[in-house]
Amino acid sequence: MMRDKAFDLLYQSFNPALPNTLWFVDENLIPEHAPAAMGNTRVIANRYHIHKKLLNAGWHAEFSDFDCQDLAPGSYDQIYLRIPKEKALAHYLINTASRLLAPMGSLILSGLKQEGIKGFFDRADTAGAQTERWKLDKETWAAAITFTQPITLDDKDYTALRPAVADTSFSFISKPGVYGWNKIDQGSQLLIEHLCDIIGQSQPQSALDIGCGYGYLSLHTGKMLSIPVIATDTNAAAIECCTANATQSNVNISAVADDCARHIDSVFDLVVCNPPFHSGFGVESQLTDRFLASAAQHLTPDGQAIFVTNLHIGIEKKAADYFSIVDTPVQTNHFKLIHLRLPKKSKATVSD
Score class of each variant (00 low, 15 high):
306 I>F: 09
253 I>Y: 12
248 Q>E: 12
303 G>Y: 06
241 C>V: 00
243 T>N: 12
226 S>R: 10
281 F>R: 05
297 Q>N: 14
268 F>V: 08
268 F>I: 07
274 N>F: 11
308 V>P: 04
268 F>M: 08
252 N>Y: 05
259 D>P: 07
270 L>K: 12
276 P>T: 10
292 L>I: 09
267 V>S: 06
239 I>V: 08
242 C>K: 03
290 R>W: 00
312 H>S: 15
221 T>S: 12
244 A>E: 13
281 F>V: 13
292 L>N: 13
286 Q>P: 01
239 I>K: 03
227 I>T: 08
278 H>K: 02
269 D>L: 06
305 A>N: 03
282 G>Q: 15
258 D>I: 02
253 I>D: 10
257 A>N: 05
240 E>F: 03
291 F>K: 01
230 I>T: 14
301 P>N: 08
273 C>S: 05
231 A>E: 09
270 L>M: 11
315 I>Y: 06
226 S>N: 15
306 I>W: 09
221 T>N: 04
229 V>Y: 02
291 F>M: 03
258 D>W: 00
301 P>D: 09
249 S>E: 11
241 C>P: 03
236 A>P: 02
244 A>P: 00
286 Q>R: 07
291 F>N: 01
279 S>W: 01
309 T>V: 15
314 G>Q: 15
302 D>E: 13
228 P>H: 10
224 M>V: 13
301 P>H: 06
296 A>M: 07
301 P>G: 04
235 N>W: 00
285 S>F: 07
263 H>A: 14
251 V>M: 02
225 L>S: 05
225 L>G: 10
230 I>M: 07
310 N>G: 14
223 K>L: 14
273 C>G: 00
263 H>V: 00
262 R>E: 14
307 F>D: 06
274 N>P: 07
316 E>Q: 14
305 A>M: 01
